[in-house]
Simulated assay, not measured.
Amino acid sequence: MTNQQSHADGTASEEEIRFLSMRAQGGFGTVVTCAMYVQQDGKAWQGQMGISEDAHIAGLRKLTEAIRAHGSLSIAQLFHAGSRADASLNGGRVWSASDIFHPAKGHQIAVEGCEEDIQGVIQAFERAAIRAAEAGFDGVEIHAAHGYLIHQFLSATTNRRTDQWGGDAEKRRRFLKEILNAVQKHLKGQLVVGVRISPEDFSFFSGIDFDESLETAQQLFTLEVDYVDISLWDALKRPNKYPEGPPAISYFSQLRGSSPTLLRTAGNIWTHEQGDQLFSLGTDLLAVGRAAIAHHDLPKRWASNLALHYPPYSAEHLMREGLSMPFVRYMKRWPNFVKEEIALNEQ
């Protein structure tokens, strides 16, 4: 849900508040923010919303109040970009689980984080969770997917450490668990706490073994996380590792057993028929991205069997759905989502 329409200092803009509150008005039970950076050195984009400073709270409170006014829950998605941070936005230093060299760029893009970096960002997630509560959010989601910092620690490709934070899967998992412990210390039983993971490799996100992801989920179930989100990019796909098996989400629903943790999934969900199929496979919650960007009232359309509009979209359509022009320009990065006649420099 990245959109680049917040202010340069990370405070929530009126455009962001309008976009998200329109989804609440359109019938979504829960509205999850874009990835909000918990620390300045984890900022990834110009116009990204932040939750790293107390100065961010006032704008976020306006956001949660607008969402609540339409009867929906609000979830703050907490993240640090790690090696995917924008060096120009954070003083030039980018760090990750290990040194990362970018072959295409021909230079190192991240240095290995030291113990001070690691402990500092764990505390930053903790403080961000406290701010989320102060801002009136109903919950927080720890973003451990999509190649960002926590994912970089989970990955055997990007985490080559030999200390307590790297090595076997359990040591690579420690960073996530320490962050979760810090957040739950303040919020467990008061706010919803969820975790989002990528269960397998996708695009340039590598080093994630499907069976290790099942182990990660099992531990999250045991730690009584309120929900675990399995981000698949195609919610009904079979695992890459087991192409002859059932859909990937089935492995997680079977593993959960009697745990009260809810299971959410995401990935190319457009129709209520897909949703019904996912519910039959053990999913409790559906996370919708691109279809929700194009239809602020998607749940109402599903309930009434109203027709959907499919991409590519005109700028006029997307702006009627609550997107500002920076968001429209950003969505041109997704192939065939925005009609070609829209110029990147349109105002």
Rank of each mutant, 00 (worst) to 15 (best):
T271W: 04
K177N: 15
L308K: 09
R320V: 14
L286F: 12
P311D: 02
I142N: 00
E126C: 04
M36E: 12
Q152H: 01
R301Q: 12
T11K: 07
A291P: 06
E134T: 14
R93Q: 13
A343W: 08
D297S: 04
P246N: 07
T216S: 03
Q5Y: 09
A287T: 12
G139C: 07
I197C: 01
T2S: 07
S213T: 05
L278E: 00
V38N: 02
D41Q: 10
G166M: 01
K62P: 02
K105T: 11
G10C: 10
I75A: 05
K185D: 15
E178Q: 07
E170F: 15
L223C: 10
F210Q: 07
S314T: 14
S231E: 09
S324C: 06
H317Y: 08
G82Q: 09
I100S: 02
K171R: 15
S83P: 09
A182T: 04
A55G: 10
L236N: 07
L89I: 05
R173D: 10
P299R: 03
I179W: 00
I342F: 05
W270M: 08
S280V: 08
G29E: 12
C34R: 10
N268S: 13
S231T: 06
R23H: 12
L214H: 02
P335Q: 09
D168M: 11
Q46F: 14
D9E: 04
D229Q: 04
Q39T: 13
L149V: 04
A169P: 02
A58P: 00
G282C: 04
H296G: 09
E53Q: 14
N345R: 13
K332H: 02
R61T: 15
A44G: 14
I122S: 02
V111T: 12
G26A: 08
R173W: 10
T33P: 02
R264P: 01
K241I: 12
G166C: 01
G59N: 02
A315K: 09
D211F: 08
V140K: 00
T222A: 13
L263E: 01
R301M: 04
R127I: 15
E273I: 15
L298E: 02
T64M: 02
L232T: 04
Q123N: 11
H7E: 15
F221Y: 14
I75K: 00
P239E: 01
F221V: 09
D163T: 06
D9F: 07
Y37W: 11
L262T: 06
E16N: 08
A145F: 01
P246H: 10
M22V: 06
L318P: 01
P312V: 05
D211E: 14
D117A: 00
V140N: 01
T265F: 07
S88Q: 12
D234S: 10
L191V: 13
A44P: 10
D276M: 15
D168E: 10
C34G: 15
Q46V: 14
V338D: 00
L298R: 01
